[in-house]
Amino acid sequence: MITIKYFANLKSIVGREEEKLDLGPETTLLKISEAISQHSPNMGELIREKKVMVSVNMEVIPPDAVIRDGDEVALLPPFSGGL
């Protein structure tokens, strides 16, 4: 299972903070975006259009990275910490 985490405005787009996806031993961001599109087409689109950053196990990854069973994937809107 892959854990998907959503933050900030993305939580209201998908209506959840987290979900689990079973996509086999190895998968891609594209496949994850297609699975998410099943319930939230807008979120899937944001991932495919690279409007959100993606981290795997707390490191930002490039769009073509391989994602493995057990990974924690986070979808990160642009950061706005600080003042």
Partner: peptide, 27 residues
């Protein structure tokens, strides 16, 4: 450090104004 924090650290700001609540875009 403050510029790098705003660019690389996963923290998000939400502002409440008269028009409602809005998640802030990076500045």
């Amino acid at each position: 450090a403050i510029a790098e924090l705003k660019r690389t650290v996963p923290i998000w700001k939400r502002e409440t104004t008269g028009s409602g609540e809005v998640w802030v875009s990076p500045t």
